[in-house]
Computed example of a mutant assay.
Amino acid sequence: MEWTAVTSKKQKKQQKKKANQQQQHQRPQQQQQQQQQRKANSDNAISKKTENRTNPVPKRRRPPRTAAVAIKGVAEGFSYSAALKKLRDGIKLPELEIEKTTIRHAVSGGLLIEVPGKDKATKAELLREKVCSILGDEAKVTRPVIKGDVRLIGIDDSVGTDEVADVIATAGGCKPSEVKVGVIRPMTNGLFTVWAQCPLGAANKASSSGKIKIGWTVARIEILKARPTQCFKCWGHGHLRVKCTSTVDRSRTCYRCGAEGHPALTCTNPVRCILCAEQGKDSNHRIGTRMCKADFRATTGAARPQPPQEAMDTEDAGRRPEETLETNVQSPAVQPGA
Rank of each mutant, 00 (worst) to 15 (best):
M1D: 07
M1T: 10
E2I: 13
E2K: 12
T4R: 11
K9P: 00
K9T: 09
K12I: 05
K17H: 11
K18W: 07
N20A: 11
K39Q: 15
K48Y: 02
V57Q: 10
P58K: 13
K59Y: 00
A68T: 13
I71G: 06
I71E: 05
K72S: 08
F78P: 05
S79N: 11
Y80C: 05
S81P: 00
A82T: 08
A82F: 00
A82R: 13
A83R: 04
K85D: 13
K86M: 10
G90E: 14
I91V: 12
P94Q: 08
L96E: 02
K100A: 12
I103T: 14
R104L: 07
A121Q: 11
K130M: 05
V131G: 08
C132N: 12
L135P: 04
I146R: 14
V150L: 10
V150I: 14
V159W: 02
V159E: 02
I168T: 06
I168D: 01
A171T: 03
G172Y: 04
K175N: 12
P176M: 08
S177A: 13
S177W: 03
V179S: 12
K180L: 08
I184H: 03
P186V: 07
M187W: 00
T188C: 01
G190P: 09
G190K: 08
L191A: 04
F192P: 00
T193L: 07
L200E: 10
G201N: 09
A203K: 03
K205A: 06
S207A: 15
S207M: 04
S208C: 02
W216F: 15
T217R: 15
I223E: 10
I223M: 14
T229C: 01
W235N: 01
W235G: 02
G238A: 04
G238C: 04
V242C: 12
C244P: 05
T245E: 15
T247K: 13
T247I: 04
R250E: 01
C254I: 03
R256H: 14
A264V: 07
T266W: 10
P270I: 05
E278W: 07
K281D: 04
T289I: 09
R290Y: 03
K293G: 06
P307S: 11
Q309H: 10
M312W: 07
D316L: 01
A317Q: 01
T327W: 15
Q330T: 11
S331T: 09
P332I: 05
A333V: 00
V334R: 03
V334E: 03
G337W: 05
